[in-house]
């Protein structure tokens, strides 16, 4: 595996999706957009491997170990259920879960689009199945343009939001 798109691209896409949803749903404030962003970042919690490698944990615990499940759909749902649901105030819980999962889904969709050496993606549905999608060969994690495109998109949406907020506070300026 050569890698995943940089975290910034995922976070920018999360911001864009969250902010677009806030246009549609009035209850969705910037704090809720942050939940989509955390969800969009969450599969990369697996990068903890860089600090605490699989082998080290395996050695310390005396059992085989891999952080990889964090980067699967089932792993994302479990993380969403703890971080995005149970740790959030009861009244907000299920909305928070939904936002977190939307973010995590966007992450997996982008990662399946990555170029891989073998032409196949990772086993996103593990442990349900080890099926690997053919890689969409769209971009490499170290490419610079995905972050630029995602950044442009996020900036556009941010400008639209600024305009809408100004208009709401002062209707004469619309």
């Amino acid at each position: 595996m050569i890698g995943v798109p940089d975290v910034l691209t995922h976070v920018l896409v999360g911001y864009s999706i969250g902010t677009l949803l806030s246009f549609r749903y009035a209850w969705l404030r910037p704090a809720h957009v942050t939940l989509v962003m955390i969800g969009a970042l969450s599969p990369d919690f697996m990068k903890i491997d860089l600090l605490v490698p699989d082998g080290l944990v395996g050695f310390l615990l005396g059992i085989p170990f891999s952080w990889a499940p964090l980067h699967t759909l089932v792993g994302s749902l479990l993380v969403a259920f703890v971080l995005g649901t149970l740790l959030i105030a009861p009244a907000l819980r299920w909305r928070a879960f939904g936002l977190f999962v939307i973010g995590a889904l966007s992450h997996h969709v982008l990662d399946v689009a990555l170029v891989t050496a073998t032409g196949y993606s990772y086993a996103v549905f593990w442990p349900l199945t080890t099926y690997r999608f053919p890689a969409a060969d769209l971009f490499l994690s170290s490419d610079r343009w995905p972050a630029l495109v995602a950044g442009g998109l996020a900036l556009t949406i941010w400008l639209v939001r600024q305009r809408i907020t100004t208009a709401e506070n002062d209707p004469s300026r619309l």
């Binding site: 697996m46 395996g58 059992i63 170990f65 990889a68 499940p69 792993g75 086993a123 593990w126 442990p127």
Partner: peptide, 13 residues
Amino acid sequence: LFIWAGTMPTDPL
């Protein structure tokens, strides 16, 4: 799941 994936010859990634 972490332990299960650790026992597999090729983990999901």
